[in-house]
Design a protein around this nucleic acid. Structure first.
Lengths: 172, 172
DNA sequence: TATTGTTATACTCTATAACTATA
DNA sequence: TATAGTTATAGAGTATAACAATA
Protein backbone atom coordinates (compact mmCIF):
# COMPACT_ATOMS: atom_id res chain seq x y z
CA UNK A 1 0.00 0.00 0.00
CA UNK A 2 1.09 3.51 -0.59
CA UNK A 3 1.38 5.55 2.53
CA UNK A 4 1.53 9.23 3.17
CA UNK A 5 5.23 9.92 3.45
CA UNK A 6 5.03 10.39 7.20
CA UNK A 7 4.16 6.89 8.22
CA UNK A 8 5.28 3.34 7.78
CA UNK A 9 3.21 0.21 7.99
CA UNK A 10 3.89 -1.83 11.05
CA UNK A 11 5.45 -4.51 8.91
CA UNK A 12 7.76 -1.98 7.35
CA UNK A 13 8.74 -0.80 10.79
CA UNK A 14 9.38 -4.34 11.87
CA UNK A 15 11.48 -4.98 8.82
CA UNK A 16 13.45 -1.79 9.34
CA UNK A 17 14.15 -2.41 13.00
CA UNK A 18 15.15 -5.98 12.32
CA UNK A 19 17.42 -4.81 9.56
CA UNK A 20 19.18 -2.23 11.69
CA UNK A 21 19.53 -4.67 14.54
CA UNK A 22 21.01 -7.40 12.38
CA UNK A 23 23.23 -4.89 10.70
CA UNK A 24 24.56 -3.51 13.94
CA UNK A 25 25.10 -6.81 15.71
CA UNK A 26 26.58 -8.52 12.68
CA UNK A 27 28.92 -5.66 11.97
CA UNK A 28 30.05 -5.64 15.57
CA UNK A 29 30.76 -9.34 15.60
CA UNK A 30 32.53 -9.30 12.26
CA UNK A 31 34.70 -6.38 13.28
CA UNK A 32 35.76 -8.23 16.36
CA UNK A 33 36.61 -11.36 14.40
CA UNK A 34 38.67 -9.37 11.91
CA UNK A 35 40.46 -7.60 14.71
CA UNK A 36 41.19 -10.81 16.58
CA UNK A 37 42.18 -12.88 13.59
CA UNK A 38 44.22 -10.37 11.63
CA UNK A 39 44.30 -7.07 13.50
CA UNK A 40 42.30 -5.53 10.68
CA UNK A 41 39.61 -2.91 10.83
CA UNK A 42 36.53 -3.52 8.73
CA UNK A 43 37.59 -0.88 6.25
CA UNK A 44 41.05 -2.34 5.91
CA UNK A 45 39.55 -5.75 5.31
CA UNK A 46 37.28 -4.33 2.63
CA UNK A 47 40.22 -2.73 0.89
CA UNK A 48 42.31 -5.88 0.97
CA UNK A 49 39.36 -7.99 -0.15
CA UNK A 50 38.77 -5.64 -3.06
CA UNK A 51 42.37 -5.97 -4.08
CA UNK A 52 42.12 -9.71 -3.70
CA UNK A 53 39.14 -9.71 -6.02
CA UNK A 54 41.11 -8.01 -8.74
CA UNK A 55 42.80 -10.50 -11.09
CA UNK A 56 46.21 -8.88 -10.72
CA UNK A 57 45.69 -7.74 -7.15
CA UNK A 58 45.87 -4.11 -8.22
CA UNK A 59 43.58 -1.10 -8.10
CA UNK A 60 43.94 2.60 -8.48
CA UNK A 61 43.39 4.70 -5.40
CA UNK A 62 40.33 6.36 -6.87
CA UNK A 63 38.73 3.03 -7.73
CA UNK A 64 39.28 1.85 -4.21
CA UNK A 65 37.83 5.04 -2.77
CA UNK A 66 34.73 4.70 -4.94
CA UNK A 67 34.04 1.22 -3.67
CA UNK A 68 34.23 2.14 -0.04
CA UNK A 69 32.56 5.55 -0.27
CA UNK A 70 35.53 7.25 1.25
CA UNK A 71 37.13 10.58 1.00
CA UNK A 72 40.44 10.54 -0.81
CA UNK A 73 42.34 11.58 2.25
CA UNK A 74 40.72 8.89 4.32
CA UNK A 75 41.81 6.32 1.79
CA UNK A 76 45.34 7.69 1.75
CA UNK A 77 45.43 7.31 5.50
CA UNK A 78 44.30 3.69 5.37
CA UNK A 79 46.59 2.87 2.46
CA UNK A 80 49.51 4.22 4.45
CA UNK A 81 48.64 1.98 7.35
CA UNK A 82 48.40 -1.05 5.10
CA UNK A 83 51.65 -0.16 3.37
CA UNK A 84 53.44 0.25 6.68
CA UNK A 85 52.34 -3.25 7.58
CA UNK A 86 53.62 -4.52 4.27
CA UNK A 87 50.21 -5.68 3.12
CA UNK A 88 50.14 -3.49 0.02
CA UNK A 89 52.55 -1.47 -2.05
CA UNK A 90 51.91 1.83 -3.78
CA UNK A 91 53.48 2.96 -7.01
CA UNK A 92 52.68 5.50 -9.70
CA UNK A 93 50.78 4.09 -12.63
CA UNK A 94 52.58 3.54 -15.92
CA UNK A 95 49.54 4.68 -17.91
CA UNK A 96 48.88 7.85 -16.00
CA UNK A 97 51.58 9.34 -13.86
CA UNK A 98 48.98 11.01 -11.67
CA UNK A 99 47.45 7.74 -10.57
CA UNK A 100 48.75 5.53 -7.83
CA UNK A 101 48.37 1.80 -8.19
CA UNK A 102 47.91 -0.15 -5.01
CA UNK A 103 49.09 -3.74 -5.13
CA UNK A 104 48.36 -6.56 -2.75
CA UNK A 105 51.55 -8.20 -1.46
CA UNK A 106 52.12 -11.80 -0.50
CA UNK A 107 51.77 -10.80 3.11
CA UNK A 108 48.49 -9.15 2.22
CA UNK A 109 47.23 -12.34 0.62
CA UNK A 110 48.36 -14.28 3.65
CA UNK A 111 46.41 -12.03 5.96
CA UNK A 112 43.32 -12.45 3.82
CA UNK A 113 43.78 -16.19 3.86
CA UNK A 114 44.16 -16.08 7.63
CA UNK A 115 41.07 -14.03 8.15
CA UNK A 116 38.67 -15.47 5.60
CA UNK A 117 37.80 -18.80 7.19
CA UNK A 118 36.82 -17.21 10.48
CA UNK A 119 34.93 -14.55 8.63
CA UNK A 120 32.89 -17.10 6.77
CA UNK A 121 32.43 -19.19 9.84
CA UNK A 122 31.11 -16.19 11.69
CA UNK A 123 28.58 -15.56 8.94
CA UNK A 124 27.45 -19.14 9.22
CA UNK A 125 27.05 -18.98 12.95
CA UNK A 126 25.50 -15.56 13.14
CA UNK A 127 23.46 -15.13 10.02
CA UNK A 128 22.86 -18.27 8.04
CA UNK A 129 22.51 -20.80 10.83
CA UNK A 130 18.82 -20.12 11.31
CA UNK A 131 17.89 -19.37 7.72
CA UNK A 132 16.58 -21.91 5.25
CA UNK A 133 17.83 -22.08 1.69
CA UNK A 134 14.63 -20.43 0.58
CA UNK A 135 15.16 -17.65 3.09
CA UNK A 136 18.60 -17.00 1.70
CA UNK A 137 17.21 -16.98 -1.82
CA UNK A 138 14.61 -14.45 -0.81
CA UNK A 139 17.11 -12.34 1.03
CA UNK A 140 19.46 -12.28 -1.92
CA UNK A 141 16.66 -11.36 -4.28
CA UNK A 142 15.08 -8.65 -2.13
CA UNK A 143 18.24 -7.05 -0.87
CA UNK A 144 19.81 -7.34 -4.29
CA UNK A 145 17.03 -5.22 -5.68
CA UNK A 146 17.28 -2.77 -2.82
CA UNK A 147 21.02 -2.45 -3.28
CA UNK A 148 20.62 -1.82 -6.97
CA UNK A 149 18.09 0.87 -6.24
CA UNK A 150 20.23 2.50 -3.59
CA UNK A 151 23.27 2.47 -5.82
CA UNK A 152 21.30 4.31 -8.48
CA UNK A 153 19.71 6.78 -6.08
CA UNK A 154 21.78 9.88 -5.45
CA UNK A 155 21.44 11.45 -2.02
CA UNK A 156 18.65 13.86 -2.84
CA UNK A 157 19.57 16.96 -0.93
CA UNK A 158 23.21 16.67 -1.89
CA UNK A 159 22.21 16.40 -5.52
CA UNK A 160 23.76 19.54 -7.01
CA UNK A 161 27.13 18.49 -5.72
CA UNK A 162 29.75 17.09 -7.99
CA UNK A 163 29.99 13.35 -7.85
CA UNK A 164 33.30 11.59 -7.56
CA UNK A 165 33.47 9.62 -10.79
CA UNK A 166 30.72 10.90 -13.04
CA UNK A 167 31.85 13.84 -15.14
CA UNK A 168 28.83 16.08 -14.75
CA UNK A 169 28.84 19.58 -15.98
CA UNK A 170 28.90 21.75 -12.93
CA UNK A 171 25.88 23.97 -12.56
CA UNK A 172 27.37 27.22 -11.27
CA UNK B 1 36.20 -14.77 -10.13
CA UNK B 2 36.18 -14.89 -6.41
CA UNK B 3 38.40 -17.10 -4.43
CA UNK B 4 36.66 -20.37 -3.70
CA UNK B 5 34.86 -19.60 -0.44
CA UNK B 6 35.44 -22.50 1.88
CA UNK B 7 31.82 -22.92 2.77
CA UNK B 8 29.35 -20.34 1.59
CA UNK B 9 27.03 -20.96 -1.30
CA UNK B 10 27.05 -18.39 -4.03
CA UNK B 11 23.56 -17.35 -3.03
CA UNK B 12 24.70 -16.84 0.51
CA UNK B 13 27.53 -14.68 -0.74
CA UNK B 14 25.13 -12.70 -2.86
CA UNK B 15 22.83 -12.21 0.07
CA UNK B 16 25.70 -11.16 2.30
CA UNK B 17 27.14 -8.66 -0.15
CA UNK B 18 23.73 -7.21 -0.85
CA UNK B 19 23.10 -6.92 2.85
CA UNK B 20 26.34 -5.10 3.57
CA UNK B 21 25.82 -2.81 0.62
CA UNK B 22 22.29 -1.89 1.61
CA UNK B 23 23.38 -1.49 5.18
CA UNK B 24 26.23 0.80 4.31
CA UNK B 25 24.39 2.97 1.81
CA UNK B 26 21.24 3.20 3.89
CA UNK B 27 23.15 4.09 7.00
CA UNK B 28 25.07 6.74 5.14
CA UNK B 29 21.92 8.32 3.75
CA UNK B 30 20.09 8.20 7.05
CA UNK B 31 23.00 9.75 8.89
CA UNK B 32 23.05 12.59 6.46
CA UNK B 33 19.34 13.18 6.81
CA UNK B 34 19.58 13.19 10.60
CA UNK B 35 22.49 15.57 10.45
CA UNK B 36 20.76 17.91 8.04
CA UNK B 37 17.36 17.85 9.68
CA UNK B 38 18.33 17.96 13.33
CA UNK B 39 22.10 18.06 13.62
CA UNK B 40 21.97 14.64 15.23
CA UNK B 41 24.37 11.78 14.89
CA UNK B 42 22.89 8.36 14.39
CA UNK B 43 23.75 7.37 17.92
CA UNK B 44 22.16 10.48 19.35
CA UNK B 45 19.04 9.82 17.34
CA UNK B 46 18.91 6.27 18.63
CA UNK B 47 19.19 7.47 22.19
CA UNK B 48 16.47 10.08 21.79
CA UNK B 49 14.25 7.61 19.97
CA UNK B 50 14.70 5.11 22.76
CA UNK B 51 13.70 7.70 25.29
CA UNK B 52 10.76 8.65 23.14
CA UNK B 53 9.68 5.02 23.11
CA UNK B 54 9.54 4.91 26.85
CA UNK B 55 6.11 5.83 28.25
CA UNK B 56 7.52 8.44 30.62
CA UNK B 57 10.42 9.44 28.41
CA UNK B 58 12.91 8.15 30.93
CA UNK B 59 15.61 5.52 31.01
CA UNK B 60 18.53 4.67 33.21
CA UNK B 61 21.98 5.18 31.77
CA UNK B 62 22.74 1.49 31.89
CA UNK B 63 19.56 0.58 30.06
CA UNK B 64 20.40 3.06 27.35
CA UNK B 65 23.92 1.71 27.06
CA UNK B 66 22.61 -1.82 26.71
CA UNK B 67 20.38 -0.91 23.82
CA UNK B 68 23.10 0.77 21.83
CA UNK B 69 25.92 -1.63 22.70
CA UNK B 70 28.04 1.16 24.04
CA UNK B 71 30.65 1.55 26.64
CA UNK B 72 29.49 3.44 29.68
CA UNK B 73 31.91 6.24 29.09
CA UNK B 74 30.81 6.58 25.51
CA UNK B 75 27.25 6.93 26.65
CA UNK B 76 28.20 9.50 29.26
CA UNK B 77 29.87 11.49 26.52
CA UNK B 78 26.80 11.41 24.31
CA UNK B 79 24.45 12.12 27.19
CA UNK B 80 26.51 15.18 28.04
CA UNK B 81 26.19 16.44 24.50
CA UNK B 82 22.44 15.92 24.52
CA UNK B 83 22.14 17.58 27.91
CA UNK B 84 24.15 20.57 26.78
CA UNK B 85 21.73 21.00 23.92
CA UNK B 86 18.83 20.77 26.32
CA UNK B 87 17.40 17.67 24.71
CA UNK B 88 17.61 15.55 27.85
CA UNK B 89 18.09 16.03 31.56
CA UNK B 90 19.99 13.81 33.94
CA UNK B 91 19.13 13.27 37.58
CA UNK B 92 19.90 10.65 40.20
CA UNK B 93 17.25 7.99 40.54
CA UNK B 94 14.96 8.01 43.54
CA UNK B 95 15.02 4.23 43.78
CA UNK B 96 18.74 3.79 43.57
CA UNK B 97 21.00 6.70 44.27
CA UNK B 98 23.70 5.19 42.09
CA UNK B 99 21.60 5.29 38.98
CA UNK B 100 21.12 8.28 36.75
CA UNK B 101 17.78 8.73 35.07
CA UNK B 102 17.86 10.39 31.68
CA UNK B 103 14.70 12.25 30.72
CA UNK B 104 13.63 13.51 27.35
CA UNK B 105 12.79 17.22 27.44
CA UNK B 106 10.22 19.09 25.38
CA UNK B 107 13.02 20.29 23.16
CA UNK B 108 14.08 16.69 22.77
CA UNK B 109 10.61 15.69 21.68
CA UNK B 110 10.54 18.61 19.30
CA UNK B 111 13.76 17.50 17.68
CA UNK B 112 12.41 13.99 17.30
CA UNK B 113 9.26 15.38 15.73
CA UNK B 114 11.37 17.49 13.41
CA UNK B 115 13.53 14.63 12.32
CA UNK B 116 11.06 11.76 12.08
CA UNK B 117 9.16 12.68 8.92
CA UNK B 118 12.30 13.02 6.87
CA UNK B 119 13.63 9.86 8.37
CA UNK B 120 10.59 7.93 7.35
CA UNK B 121 10.47 9.57 3.97
CA UNK B 122 14.07 8.55 3.39
CA UNK B 123 13.21 4.97 4.21
CA UNK B 124 10.40 5.12 1.72
CA UNK B 125 12.57 6.48 -1.02
CA UNK B 126 15.61 4.39 -0.36
CA UNK B 127 14.41 1.07 0.90
CA UNK B 128 10.72 0.46 0.44
CA UNK B 129 10.13 2.14 -2.89
CA UNK B 130 11.15 -0.89 -4.89
CA UNK B 131 9.85 -3.58 -2.57
CA UNK B 132 6.44 -5.18 -2.79
CA UNK B 133 4.33 -5.79 0.27
CA UNK B 134 5.26 -9.44 0.08
CA UNK B 135 8.91 -8.53 -0.05
CA UNK B 136 8.54 -6.47 3.09
CA UNK B 137 6.72 -9.31 4.79
CA UNK B 138 9.50 -11.69 3.88
CA UNK B 139 12.15 -9.26 4.98
CA UNK B 140 10.48 -8.72 8.33
CA UNK B 141 10.13 -12.44 8.87
CA UNK B 142 13.62 -13.45 7.81
CA UNK B 143 15.50 -10.62 9.44
CA UNK B 144 13.35 -10.85 12.51
CA UNK B 145 14.47 -14.40 12.96
CA UNK B 146 18.08 -13.48 12.30
CA UNK B 147 17.94 -10.64 14.79
CA UNK B 148 16.48 -12.91 17.42
CA UNK B 149 19.25 -15.39 16.83
CA UNK B 150 21.95 -12.75 16.96
CA UNK B 151 20.56 -11.27 20.13
CA UNK B 152 20.74 -14.67 21.77
CA UNK B 153 24.19 -15.52 20.44
CA UNK B 154 27.01 -14.34 22.62
CA UNK B 155 30.20 -13.38 20.81
CA UNK B 156 31.92 -16.73 20.95
CA UNK B 157 35.48 -15.85 21.74
CA UNK B 158 34.48 -13.21 24.25
CA UNK B 159 32.17 -15.68 25.90
CA UNK B 160 33.55 -15.89 29.43
CA UNK B 161 33.00 -12.18 29.94
CA UNK B 162 30.23 -10.92 32.12
CA UNK B 163 27.22 -9.65 30.24
CA UNK B 164 25.71 -6.30 31.00
CA UNK B 165 22.07 -6.93 31.86
CA UNK B 166 21.46 -10.61 32.12
CA UNK B 167 22.01 -11.79 35.68
CA UNK B 168 23.89 -14.92 34.73
CA UNK B 169 25.77 -16.80 37.31
CA UNK B 170 29.35 -16.18 36.43
CA UNK B 171 31.12 -19.36 35.46
CA UNK B 172 34.37 -19.07 37.39
C1' DT C 1 32.42 -6.60 47.53
C1' DA C 2 29.57 -5.40 43.44
C1' DT C 3 27.24 -1.98 40.75
C1' DT C 4 26.47 2.70 38.64
C1' DG C 5 28.33 6.33 36.55
C1' DT C 6 32.01 9.92 35.62
C1' DT C 7 36.59 11.53 34.46
C1' DA C 8 41.12 11.49 32.38
C1' DT C 9 43.34 10.08 28.62
C1' DA C 10 44.87 8.22 24.45
C1' DC C 11 43.80 6.58 20.07
C1' DT C 12 41.34 5.73 15.68
C1' DC C 13 39.06 7.42 12.15
C1' DT C 14 37.05 10.79 8.94
C1' DA C 15 36.53 14.96 6.37
C1' DT C 16 37.91 19.73 4.62
C1' DA C 17 41.06 22.65 2.57
C1' DA C 18 45.39 23.72 0.72
C1' DC C 19 48.90 21.94 -1.98
C1' DT C 20 51.74 19.35 -5.76
C1' DA C 21 52.00 16.99 -10.01
C1' DT C 22 50.39 15.38 -14.09
C1' DA C 23 46.90 15.41 -18.15
C1' DT D 1 41.53 23.95 -16.49
C1' DA D 2 40.59 19.35 -14.57
C1' DT D 3 42.09 15.19 -12.34
C1' DA D 4 44.89 12.15 -8.89
C1' DG D 5 46.77 12.02 -4.72
C1' DT D 6 49.01 13.79 -0.41
C1' DT D 7 49.46 16.64 3.64
C1' DA D 8 48.06 19.44 7.47
C1' DT D 9 44.76 19.87 10.58
C1' DA D 10 40.85 19.73 13.23
C1' DG D 11 36.94 17.35 15.13
C1' DA D 12 33.96 13.54 16.45
C1' DG D 13 33.71 9.41 18.58
C1' DT D 14 35.22 5.31 21.18
C1' DA D 15 37.37 2.56 24.63
C1' DT D 16 40.28 1.61 28.86
C1' DA D 17 41.48 2.45 33.38
C1' DA D 18 41.22 4.85 37.57
C1' DC D 19 38.05 6.83 40.48
C1' DA D 20 33.87 8.10 43.67
C1' DA D 21 29.57 6.96 45.49
C1' DT D 22 25.99 3.87 46.67
C1' DA D 23 23.96 -0.93 47.51
Amino acid sequence: MDQPPSSLTSTQLTAYFAFTEVSSLLRHAVEQQLRDAGNLSYVQFQLLARLGDSPDGQRRMTDLADGVVYSRSGLTYQAQLLEQRGLVTRAPSADDERSVVVTLTEAGRDILATVFPGHIEALHHLLFATLSDDDVDELARILGRAAEHLRATPPRSAAPRRRKTSPERAAP
